[in-house]
Amino acid sequence: MSGADELGELDADSLHDSEALPFRRPHPVIIAASVTARGGALWLPVAGLLALAGRRRTAQRALTAAAVAMPLGHLVSFVVHRRRPPAADLPARQALPEHPDSSSFPSKHAVTAAAFGTATALEDPGAAVFVTPLVLLVAYSRLRTRVHWPTDVLGGLAIGALVALAQAGTGRSAKASRWTAVVRPVLPGRT
């Protein structure tokens, strides 16, 4: 059995044979998390609240990471053609007003949420205490409503986190370059 077959079997078992994810209609909060996170819309008011709380730089970094991650998630989805879980007749899936039919991998909701959340955590761990539960709620909502396989969500979380980490690394490199430009004229021969 190939790795892809084993992964598919694991996904099917965890999504369809698990008692952790009921088949009934999800709680309205779970539905709201899934619906409002569509297209990254949820993260705009969250960033606004961060900015109002005096965390403007955190909001900017988090929104930038999400804005980079979302199209990347769509690009990966375009390349990786994966069918969504066959759950169209379940109350859990019917609870959503949307019925996505695009490629299932990765969960673009999870990609965007993870990028926003990871960038927040890297920039401001205090703000991450409030943002991280929302990120996890969005990721769970995609499983609970049966629109994604577990590996779609995990893959999305990983991609989003990597985008935020890359953004943080790029920011540090730019700061180091600026610092070097200041130090070099003052201290010749030192970098």
Score class of each variant (00 low, 15 high):
residue 2 S to Y: 13
residue 3 G to E: 13
residue 3 G to S: 15
residue 3 G to P: 06
residue 4 A to E: 15
residue 5 D to M: 11
residue 7 L to R: 08
residue 7 L to Y: 12
residue 8 G to D: 07
residue 9 E to F: 13
residue 11 D to G: 12
residue 14 S to Y: 14
residue 15 L to G: 09
residue 16 H to F: 14
residue 25 R to I: 03
residue 32 A to S: 14
residue 34 S to D: 08
residue 34 S to E: 13
residue 35 V to G: 08
residue 37 A to R: 05
residue 37 A to Y: 10
residue 38 R to E: 15
residue 39 G to P: 03
residue 40 G to Y: 09
residue 40 G to A: 09
residue 40 G to E: 07
residue 44 L to N: 00
residue 46 V to F: 01
residue 47 A to G: 01
residue 51 A to H: 11
residue 52 L to C: 14
residue 52 L to Y: 15
residue 55 R to P: 01
residue 58 T to G: 02
residue 61 R to Y: 07
residue 61 R to N: 06
residue 62 A to L: 06
residue 63 L to S: 11
residue 64 T to P: 09
residue 64 T to Y: 07
residue 65 A to D: 08
residue 65 A to N: 04
residue 66 A to N: 07
residue 67 A to V: 05
residue 67 A to D: 02
residue 67 A to I: 04
residue 68 V to I: 15
residue 69 A to T: 09
residue 72 L to A: 08
residue 74 H to G: 13
residue 76 V to C: 10
residue 76 V to P: 02
residue 77 S to E: 14
residue 78 F to C: 13
residue 81 H to Y: 12
residue 82 R to W: 03
residue 86 P to A: 04
residue 86 P to W: 11
residue 86 P to Y: 09
residue 87 A to Y: 06
residue 90 L to V: 00
residue 93 R to C: 01
residue 96 L to E: 08
residue 97 P to G: 12
residue 99 H to P: 07
residue 100 P to H: 04
residue 100 P to F: 09
residue 103 S to K: 01
residue 104 S to D: 12
residue 104 S to V: 04
residue 105 F to G: 07
residue 105 F to Y: 05
residue 106 P to D: 12
residue 107 S to L: 04
residue 108 K to W: 13
residue 109 H to S: 09
residue 114 A to H: 02
residue 115 A to Q: 12
residue 122 L to R: 04
residue 124 D to E: 03
residue 127 A to E: 00
residue 130 F to K: 11
residue 131 V to I: 01
residue 141 S to G: 09
residue 143 L to M: 03
residue 149 W to S: 02
residue 149 W to I: 01
residue 150 P to F: 09
residue 152 D to Y: 05
residue 153 V to A: 06
residue 153 V to R: 05
residue 154 L to P: 00
residue 155 G to I: 08
residue 156 G to A: 05
residue 157 L to C: 15
residue 157 L to K: 10
residue 157 L to H: 13
residue 158 A to L: 10
residue 162 L to G: 10
residue 163 V to T: 07
residue 165 L to E: 15
residue 168 A to S: 08
residue 173 S to L: 13
residue 176 A to G: 14
residue 178 R to H: 03
residue 183 V to R: 06
residue 184 R to V: 14
residue 185 P to N: 10
residue 187 L to D: 09
residue 189 G to E: 14
residue 190 R to S: 10
